[in-house]
Every structure is written in C-alpha cells, then in structure tokens.
C-alpha cells in the first residue's frame, strides 16, 4: 500500500531523511517512533506530499507521489491525515468540517454528506456535538472530529502525526480508543506516536527512526522486550523511566 524506496530529503544542510526504505501492507498498522528531530513527522508528511522529497520514490496505492504527473489532489483525497494540532476549520461547525471535502472534492450531495457525517460522529462518540464549533470542544473532542473528517473521504490509508501529543493526559485515551477501533476495522494506518501502550496493543510493527534513518523495525513484542539497536534501547529506557 505504501512503499518508500531510498527516500532522501534535505532542509538546507540538514539531512532529515537519509535513505528511508519502508513498506506498509494493506490493513497493516505501523507505529513510527523515535527521538524528537529524528525525521519521523517529516517522513509521514512526505506520504501525501505535504513535504516534498529530494531523492527516491514513494509509492502509495500504485502511484508514485513524487512524480510531477501524479494528480496530488486526487491522491490526497484517498489518504486521510490527522495532525498533532487537529487543524479543524474554526469557522465551520463540526458537521460542516466533516462534509466540506466530500461535497467540494468528491461532489457528494449535501444530504448524503450530512448523513455520512452523523454516522461518523456516532462512531467517534460525538453525535451530540454536530452543531458545535471547534473552539467549543476540548482537545480530545477536536481530535476525534478530525479523525471523522479524515474518514469522510473514505480513505484507503490513514496517517496520524503525533495525534495525542497536544492533548491533556486525560483526553489521550478517548482518541487512542477511536484509533484502535479504526485499526480493528481493517484500516491501513501509519502512526507517529510516543504512546507505547498503543503501539504494544494495536500495532503490527514498530519502526524506530533516528537521524533520518530507520534503525530498527520489529513486531511490538520483540521491539519492547528486546530492542537490538543501542539508540532504540536508550530511547525506550528514557520513555519508561524519564527521571533516571
């Protein structure tokens, strides 16, 4: 479903992505983790070309996203993206946030889009908030709406860029639960997160990235119990016992 072939990217002199090779199969849930500045957010943003790449290829659903001939708008419509800071449209109500792109990009009629939006809101547990505005919701609620907005395009893949790192601790669970349900429904997912509980329970594979390189990838059991790479060991130690 997603394939990175030797992907490189530079920000001026900084080599953010240094030869990424990665495959994500259909229905697979891959968690990407790594220290801050390791390039994990940049990497996930290259999948739908919110960040361009300088070298290599990224194939999504059989299309090379770096090829100038690829219709990026059509590709992005099939790839859901959930941001760290939610990025809901503040001037639109919850239901309009969800229906805007199905109506304007896919040409869905309003009644059908509204019906779909309500169904999605039920799925994320927020049907009663459909007429609220984003600024009236908590962070966790906003992020759940953002997930519903992504799902409204019926994407083939969902990408999550640190979906819970801007949330208060008591709201993290509600968002992770929605993501877990989504994974169980068979959605292909790539998730940048530090939520190791989520990785352990939901992921099929954990990818550890450092200095723009994938240094380790393994099923969660193996990754947490027996990390091979020294940097991964250090990272996990710091995550589990941050004060030591």
């Amino acid at each position: 479903m997603i394939r990175f072939n030797n992907v490189h990217k530079w920000f001026k002199d900084l080599h953010v992505l240094n030869g990424i090779d990665l495959q994500v199969a259909q229905g697979e849930v891959v968690v990407v983790c790594g220290p801050s500045g390791s390039g994990k957010s940049t990497m996930i943003r290259t999948v739908n070309q919110l960040e361009s790449i300088n070298e290599g290829e990224i194939w999504v659903d059989g299309k090379n996203v770096a090829d100038p001939k690829t219709d990026l708008n059509a590709l992005r419509a099939e790839v859901g993206f959930v941001f760290q800071h939610f990025n809901l449209y503040p001037h639109l109500s919850v239901v309009d946030n969800i229906t805007l792109s199905p109506i304007k990009v896919k040409g869905m009629d309003k009644a059908a889009a509204d019906k779909q939006a309500v169904a999605l809101l039920e799925r994320v547990g927020l049907a009663h908030k459909k007429d609220a505005f984003p600024a009236q919701l908590s962070g966790g609620q906003q992020q759940r709406v953002a997930i519903a907005r992504g799902l409204a395009m019926e994407p083939r893949v969902m990408l999550f860029d640190e979906p819970t790192s801007a949330l208060d601790p008591e709201m993290i669970g509600e968002v992770l639960k929605v993501m877990k349900d989504l994974a169980e429904s068979g959605m292909t997912m790539m998730v940048v997160t530090h939520e190791m509980g989520f990785a352990r329970e939901v992921a099929d594979r954990v990818v550890f990235i450092d200095h723009g390189k994938i240094v380790e990838q393994a099923p969660p059991e193996a990754f947490f119990k027996n990390p091979q790479h020294e940097r991964a060991q250090q990272f996990l130690r710091q995550l589990l016992t941050p004060m030591s």
Partner: peptide, 18 residues
C-alpha cells in the same frame, strides 16, 4: 492564520483555489 490550516485543506484533496 495557523500554517496547519492550509496543510489540513490540502491534505483532504483541495486544490490551491479551493
């Protein structure tokens, strides 16, 4: 406006004009 707004709009498949 926060930079995330245009990223969010582009990410759902909007053209620059939309």
């Amino acid at each position: 406006l926060p930079r995330g707004q245009s990223a969010a709009a582009l990410a759902v498949g909007f053209s620059i004009g939309q």
